[in-house]
Design a binder for these strands. Structure first.
Length: 510
DNA sequence: AAAAAAG
């Protein structure tokens, strides 16, 4: 590991970091900071929870100089208000030993405080698009000297919903500037589009190209939810001994509110966050969850990206997300900074095609969500608890899980070939061991310790999209008629490392 | 189609 000091980071920033116990740089930071400091345009791609924020944030702070004159010189754009607050806090920490000041500009809040901070001469703005444009239109936010520009969750910022706003914002900042785009997912077409806003960008991927984008230290489980009482099953998951904080994602705001109320009624310590809540309530929820006063957060995809909360052991997809990128970001709320975590997904009958799509894109090798629906009450006795915690699930509900081995996964749609990398290489061994994986037990990558990825050297991104693999339904799936399938044998915890063979005695349906 | 983001 390299220290921040060794990467050329100024002493006062090094001290700000070490005051928080942060001394060693993660791979994405090792790779992007030395390039960002001299002003290289960067597309930075690294898995969830591996430290992208400092990867762009440190160069931004340092490049403004130790005592910058008043006025906005840096702009960091993010997709949600909560992420805005979080990135603001990180930037505020980085600048704690220098006069540089940071302001968060986002909607749902009074204008006054934000305007005051701008008038007071804040140099770094972290903001969401709507309020940024609003204040810029009112001539209260001058972006004409913002020579440092960052899009965090860049692929989201450049997708159709945000693109017009982003174009508008880019039209207000200087043409000669330093531009950095960061995300865990960067589909080829988005990279191509991004180049319009950059000059000679380098695409850094702090991952082994063979490794894919799913975190090796997240254990993925997928259940068919047909005929399943999801509320009940989730309630039981929440009773697992050793469970830390849990984030539950729903597809709609209403579902989030309903589930939050329901689980609250059942006595769980819940908070929720979605777009139908007041901003004040949203922030209260986030603060309580971060502080540990609440340990279950029910959210829409507003919380899918970027949100960093310590000790989240479980992510539960009450409803399966629409695409593999969202899946990756949601699951990435756990397994951060080298810790282990579990991502549980429930697949409703009408959403089977979504699992097929996600399975294919992420190369889980698990085309069917669950081997069978069963009234067998053994499911959660098999649920793994992250290393370092103890205990098992107490009660015994009713289905079966299929554990998906994450290690061969590669996000086809989210990857872009770097120089000279043979196209198609990541497709190899695609279908390899499907059958043997069904119902078998796999441990997370041995020892879990291998935090985050090998490194591939910086490579110039001279490529185009590679069309990101097929996108439509997996077809060929027969319809069941709701009858419970025959009961399957209970799986047992495997003790084996993550080889390709199932752990002893772990087969299902034999 | 939903969610997010200005009010």
């Amino acid at each position: 590991m390299t220290t921040f000091a060794e990467l050329g980071v100024d002493q006062d920033i090094v001290e700000a970091l070490s005051a928080k116990g942060i001394v060693d740089a993660f791979p994405i930071q090792e790779q992007t900071i030395p390039l960002g400091l001299p002003g290289q345009d960067i597309i930075g791609q690294a898995k969830t929870g591996t430290g992208k924020t400092f990867g762009f944030g440190i160069p931004v702070v340092q490049r403004l100089g130790p005592t910058p004159a008043p006025g906005v010189k840096a702009l960091i754009v993010v997709p949600t208000r909560e992420l805005c607050v979080q990135v603001y806090e990180d930037m505020d920490m980085l600048t704690s030993n220098r006069p540089t000041s940071v302001v968060a500009i986002y909607g749902g809040k009074a204008y006054e405080g934000q305007i005051d901070q701008l008038k007071a001469g804040a140099q770094i703005v972290v903001g969401t698009p709507g309020r940024l444009i609003d204040l810029n239109n009112q001539r209260l936010l001058d972006l004409s000297h913002a020579t440092e520009v960052v899009l965090d969750e860049a692929d989201k910022m450049l997708d159709l919903g945000f693109l017009p706003d982003i174009e508008k914002i880019f039209s207000k900042v200087p043409a000669i500037r330093h531009t950095q785009l960061f995300s865990a997912t960067m589909p080829g077409p988005i990279v191509a589009l991004a180049r319009r806003f950059m000059s000679n960008p380098i695409h850094i991927r702090a991952t082994d190209p063979d490794e894919g984008l799913t975190q090796a230290n997240i254990n993925h489980l997928v259940y068919r939810a047909h005929s399943l009482d999801k509320d009940e099953v989730i309630a039981r998951i929440l009773q697992a001994d050793g469970r830390g904080k849990t984030v539950i994602f729903t597809r709609t705001k209403r579902a989030a509110q309903r589930l939050s109320d329901e689980l609250g009624d059942r006595g769980f310590n819940t908070a929720s966050v979605h777009g139908d809540m007041s901003q004040e309530a949203r922030e209260r929820s986030m603060a309580a969850f971060k502080a540990g006063k609440k340990d279950v957060l029910i959210a829409t995809d507003v919380a899918a990206r970027g949100i960093d909360v310590d000790d989240v052991t479980h992510v539960i997809n009450h409803t399966i997300p629409d695409d593999e990128k969202t899946y990756l970001h949601r699951a990435g709320r756990t397994g951060r900074a080298g810790k282990t975590g579990i991502a549980v997904t429930f697949v409703d009958w009408e959403d089977l095609h979504k699992w097929a799509l996600i399975n294919r894109a992420l190369e889980f090798g698990q085309p069917e969500p669950v081997e069978t629906y069963s009234s067998s009450p053994h499911l959660f006795s098999d649920l793994d608890i992250p290393a370092g915690t103890k205990g098992r699930i107490v009660t015994a509900p009713k289905t079966q899980a299929v554990r998906v081995q994450p290690e061969r996964a590669a996000d086809a749609a989210a990857e872009v070939e770097t120089n000279g990398e043979a196209p198609g290489r990541r497709r190899r061994r695609r279908r390899g061991g499907d059958s043997e994986r069904v119902g078998s037990t796999f441990e997370p990558a041995g020892g879990g310790a291998s935090a985050s990825a090998g490194q591939s050297g910086p490579s110039t991104d001279g490529d185009r999209s590679n069309d990101g693999g097929g996108t439509h339904d997996g077809g060929g799936k027969e319809h069941h008629d709701g009858k419970p399938a025959p009961r399957r044998r209970r799986r047992r915890r495997g003790g084996s490392g993550g080889g390709s063979a199932p752990a002893g005695g772990a087969t299902v349906g034999a």
